[in-house]
């Protein structure tokens, strides 16, 4: 298949570097040219989640004038979001897109989608506990996110980025996710405490 998911040798080398370092989510570079394709894809996916999801009216979200994607911890996306920042991701309203980087839990503020790059269960548990019930679409890289009432988790299958969605969390957070997304997702149901 022409122009498909074959990862070029340049990015393969980058991936090997990432694996050798054994530090997932490590910032490899601020330049998007050096960001692994995996994270470029994930950045697009986060953007798509934003486009396909309708949020409920909650006290914390209502304070926001724009759509906010928050990245907790290290930023693996580099400048991948640069092309979409400031644009209006949805055709239904004029809200622009904003990316917020939270270096620590203490900095965490209201956002529509919260991406947790860390796979550390304690960090995840603390983070989710902080945002659950505020209508936040929590996305993470480990199952712990889903088990703690996070909404989505990325995973790799056949070199393709896939994602799982916890329907209970969707319900809990009052989100409405387009069926297009749900059809493509692997659906799981972990109970929210």
């Amino acid at each position: 298949m022409p122009g498909s998911w074959n990862i070029s040798s340049r990015f393969a080398t980058a991936l090997i570097v990432v694996m050798l370092c054994s530090i997932p989510g490590t910032v490899i570079g601020q330049n998007s040219q050096n960001v692994p394709r995996e994270y470029k894809v994930k950045a697009v996916f986060l953007h798509r989640f934003l486009q396909y999801t309708t949020w409920p009216s909650t006290p914390s979200l209502d304070t926001l004038d724009s759509y906010v994607i928050g990245v907790l911890g290290d930023n693996p996306f580099g400048s991948s979001f640069n092309s979409v920042i400031g644009r209006t991701p949805k055709s239904t309203d004029n809200k622009t897109l904003e990316i917020k980087f939270f270096n620590s839990l203490s900095e965490l503020s209201a956002c529509h989608i919260l991406y947790i790059s860390s796979e550390d269960p304690s960090i995840i548990r603390r983070a989710t506990k902080q945002v659950v019930g505020s209508g936040t679409f929590v996305v993470g890289e480990s199952e712990t996110v889903l088990k703690n009432c996070g909404v989505a988790q990325f995973f790799i299958r056949n070199n393709h980025v896939k994602f799982m969605i916890n329907l209970n969390a969707v319900k809990e957070e009052g989100l409405k996710i387009d069926s297009e997304v749900l059809e493509l997702a692997e659906i799981v149901r972990y109970a929210c405490e």
Partner: peptide
Amino acid sequence: SQGALAFDDTDR
């Protein structure tokens, strides 16, 4: 095919 294109889902 919107979703497939949105999430790069070749199978779909």
